[in-house]
Design a binder for these strands. Sequence first.
DNA 1: AAAATAGTTGCACAGCTGTGCAATCCGGTC
DNA 2: GACCGGATTGCACAGCTGTGCAACTATTTT
Lengths: 343, 343
Amino acid sequence: MKQDKLVTGQKKSFVSAQQVAARAGVSRSAVSRTFTNGASVSPGTRQRVLQAAEELGYTVNHLARGLIQDRSNIVSLVVADLNTPYQAKMIEVLTRRLQAANKVAMVINSAGENADVETALRQTLHYRADATIVLSGQPNASLIETCLANGQHVILVNRDDPVPGPETIVVTNRTAASQAFDMLHRAGCKKLVVIGSAVGSASLNAREQAFVAAAEDAGVAVSVTRLGPTAYASGVEAARLVLSHAEQPDGVFCLTDLLACGFLDAARNEFGLSVPDELCVVGFDDIEQAGWSSYELTTFRQPIEQIADHVVTLIDHHHPTDSVQEPKRFQVQPVWRKSVRPR
Amino acid sequence: MKQDKLVTGQKKSFVSAQQVAARAGVSRSAVSRTFTNGASVSPGTRQRVLQAAEELGYTVNHLARGLIQDRSNIVSLVVADLNTPYQAKMIEVLTRRLQAANKVAMVINSAGENADVETALRQTLHYRADATIVLSGQPNASLIETCLANGQHVILVNRDDPVPGPETIVVTNRTAASQAFDMLHRAGCKKLVVIGSAVGSASLNAREQAFVAAAEDAGVAVSVTRLGPTAYASGVEAARLVLSHAEQPDGVFCLTDLLACGFLDAARNEFGLSVPDELCVVGFDDIEQAGWSSYELTTFRQPIEQIADHVVTLIDHHHPTDSVQEPKRFQVQPVWRKSVRPR
DNA sequence: AAAATAGTTGCACAGCTGTGCAATCCGGTC
DNA sequence: GACCGGATTGCACAGCTGTGCAACTATTTT
């Protein structure tokens, strides 16, 4: 039995349904139907086909299947900063959920030159992906429009492009940001600072603006520092800049936990500040490190599981439209830890 | 011009080479050759084809191309613990390198039930992946043999399966582990502990054994604690267990930086120990957090870029063999920070 | 027993591409 | 002008699958 695979040729090539059919003594259609859900095959032939398939090591060729059906079962995830804790977690959950739905994730790294991003993003069209999930602010709106023009199903996460077509998922950035202000305000902070990054994205801008607006409404001084990429090192640098200034802030809202970790470390280890006594810090995302005992960061939790679930739902029930879609909005939950004085 | 796409039908379907050919007034072959590298097309027709393709938004269907050629240009990455900093970084670099080589990464999450892993792993066969890169210890050797039996090109990273066929990439775990012992020994540590995880993998076992062997050779007391998954929380728990013991260790080798971070935090924040004065800690991997100023962890750097480069090289030059391959071995570099007393 | 019904099976086609082979075209040479 | 060589082009096939349609078998109904 087992030798057949070798005897048929040293080619070690993949087995086709034709070969299985020959071995089982049935037509190729029977093989196809055996592996097609809800097709009509008698238990007898099904059994023989399955056995022959097992013996030969047959696997349905999804390239051919995708060619004839209009679904490839491939979903492409477009992501930059893949080694960021937040994005990594998102990919982790998404791949798991997609697999549970019998789909498979194709990951497209959208970091780097714009031209490279375009060729990379074109892969989603090459492979006729069922949907494209854009998780980063990196690809231009114009590149996304290219995908849309080719009939791609595009789902944007945490973006804010006023483009007709794609479905959009966002979180309650503004609500949370003004809640962040309340936290710091009630803790008695008088001089506030917002730490952002130089690149900026829709979510980050929304958080920044809402926080500043809330502070100004309450008549509290606030300034904004944008520096480098959204990374730990940027938080460190921002702290050096801000804390060496004449009048130190006593309340900080970092638009990202990663920034917050950097800021906290620099504030404590380089400026000897005690948190939350002399300085209160609020982050955003609730990455794993925010819960580590060196940080104990008060922050806002992104509902990653809910977002992933909704993404999978959207993929299955797609109603293409040419109008701008109302974004689906998920709530972020405040997570109280120890980087802000209790009221 | 632009209306054509809509007029041809509301289907918003993908454009085929046939349609491009019709528009450009050439045969379909000419279109195919225009997009095939090194084929013979006159500059004139090439120009007309490119223009028609541009106008219609044509994209070569890689499902069909993969069907007829024997390369799909898909490479599947099998990974568990995707939200681990080390693995996330690995995926980040690999996706980038693969894209540069005109390939695309398909990510298969191998966490969860064994049956689920099998169905997930089967995707790599379904899509006729050019190669399968196994980055986690999760899939059984038997599942890997299934892939091999179907003619898959399998590359194992940091594994130790004595299976004939796959190419293997490892790092110098044993050398580094005995080097870790030297660090702690020279720092004057008298009572050593190794912190590992309950699940264990080839790399982790190698590090543990080599460290223990080096300690016993030198006649230094050493004990091993294996606990939970390879995560921060396990490091914390291990510290609680080990440090509440009567005679506290003064030197710790954590098989992973993540464990080390947890151990360090618990040692300092729960037991009030000062590092490196009262306790020296060595980690492994050099994840980003190891360099954060709350940790300043002395550790060993995995040569992720080199590994990724070599993986891509292996994919292109594949010589299938039935014998057990000698693993390609990369050196890890010690990174001196502040969690070990200088000699 | 004949007819009707439901369930199976095989044929043939469609889906989109790359490529060998033969035919064609273009330019240059005698 | 005839001939030759090389570049270009079109035809037709192969690669593997899902599925409508018709033919077939087996089972039930009248």
